[in-house]
Design a protein around this nucleic acid. Structure first.
Lengths: 265, 265
DNA sequence: AACGATTTGTTCGTATGTATC
DNA sequence: TGATACATACGAACAAATCGT
């Protein structure tokens, strides 16, 4: 009598799923069926299913039924690159290598005041103005990530006017800054966190509104040859369709394609 | 009238939380209060709170109330290191740098059959035996990560007997393999994914059983000078108290300590 | 296009259990 | 011990989405 009824039901179904009795994509018994099978009320059965949903094991479709989750094949982003590159070019390259069609929205440009955290990262005073360049990124027409790059406004004032311009920067911002201001990107730091999506992210990525799918937030701070932060880029990815790799030193080419995810033993 | 009542209630409370009217750690109105405030039934109010919980904004404590979540300050793990190191030593070093006390469980050693995925990564035949060395890792006596390293059994047969031994390997396994077999770790690849915790992880990390706190799974495949995989390490961390960084090229020391997380603007 | 059957979604009422103070 | 607050469980009704006739 230790654990409540709804959890016992969830355990039972969970076992069936993880043992493969119920395969990915397959429909679970209806709530009505489960009521009979476990002699529990509908609400209790629903409680069990809700738990499985929260665990990412099943998904419900109104009017249809409840189904074992089929994991979509992830897109893998590589976080390292040669220190001298690591710009937006990298994005297109990575995507095309995996034979998917990337696309980008227009740049949405804003002047914003830096909050405490951003100011610290960018090495500017809190409350000072920064250039914010925001883009939506898609792969095969499904929303894949939201990216915002921040630059100190001083960069535009010193001659890199295109930064404060609403257009795409041909060849990438890193190259542009090298050409106009002589700024070399000599290194960067990525900070990887995971959190629940906010309302805008739920809308853009088409995520379930209850936050059961989290998002990665990757903050990349890039430094120039003087050790000064020249850019901070924040990119948000849903965790359900993204993975990341880091490669250090001599690493053979990736042959271990994740496969179908089928345990085809 | 578009969205259901429970979501409107959740929206209202969410606004109060995100605008700071309700501060982290503060108690929300009781379910009874919220019934009156929104003239909804208790179940509907609970539905709203459940959504906020799923979003990680609040937590409930039986007999006490519902409280705005206070983010615990994260432990930051750096994924890069010099290619020649990157062993368990790194772990102790990183932890002590942040002035926390690390501790490790005994090594739990097993011989296992490699499943398809592990076999591909480790470059062995599926179903062949591998050495599995499992450890629980704590920081300040709270469970922090679960780590399992896999080695081809051939390594132990070729002279690295300690791998198949139940003891800690003084100085780290990488150094040991270099000394006994001349294997140099020349590089590694990390694969970062996020998923719901399994039952064992829920227990060890003391996570809510409904899976609303996800875990990172970091798979590190290390290669020797011949381009052969010499080790695969799988480490699992709860997302609610861990962050990761990757540093490439010349990067100044990290001064941007994440602070208390307080928006003390 | 219309309708009915099926299935999940939302909301209410009520009762009882368990944890905390 | 009692009061308070959240957790579990049942029953019921109607709404909304989906599918087939």
């Amino acid at each position: 009598m230790a654990s409540p009824m709804y959890r016992q039901i969830a355990e039972g179904l969970r076992d069936e799923i993880e043992s493969g009795v119920l395969e990915p994509g397959q429909q679970l018994p209806t709530e009505s069926d489960l009521q009979d099978r476990y002699s529990a009320s509908r609400n209790t059965v629903r409680e069990a299913i809700r738990m499985l949903m929260s665990l990412g094991l099943v998904e419900t479709r109104p009017g249809q039924g409840t189904f074992v989750t089929k994991k979509m094949d992830p897109f893998v982003t590589t976080l390292v690159a040669d220190p001298r590159t690591g710009d937006s070019d990298t994005y297109n390259f990575q995507v095309s290598e995996q034979k998917r069609k990337p696309s980008l929205s227009d740049v949405q440009l804003e002047m914003q005041k830096a909050d405490a955290q951003l100011a610290a990262r960018l090495g500017v005073r809190e409350g000072s103005r920064v250039i914010s360049r925001h883009q939506e990124r898609f792969i095969d027409d499904t929303p894949w990530s939201l990216q915002t790059s921040f630059y100190p406004r001083s960069l535009a004032e010193q001659g890199a006017e295109l930064l404060a311009d609403d257009d795409d920067i041909a060849g990438g911002a890193v190259k542009y800054l090298a050409q106009t201001l002589g700024l070399q990107q000599v290194g960067y730091r990525d900070l990887i966190t995971v959190r629940a999506p906010n309302a805008a992210e739920v809308t853009f990525f088409n995520l379930p509104p209850d936050g059961r799918v989290a998002v990665y937030e990757i903050v990349r701070t890039a430094y120039d040859q003087t050790g000064t932060a020249m850019r901070v880029t924040v990119t948000v990815y849903p965790t359900d369709r993204n993975e990341f790799t880091v490669e250090i030193g001599a690493v053979p080419n990736d042959l271990s394609q994740p496969g179908k995810g089928d345990p085809s033993s």
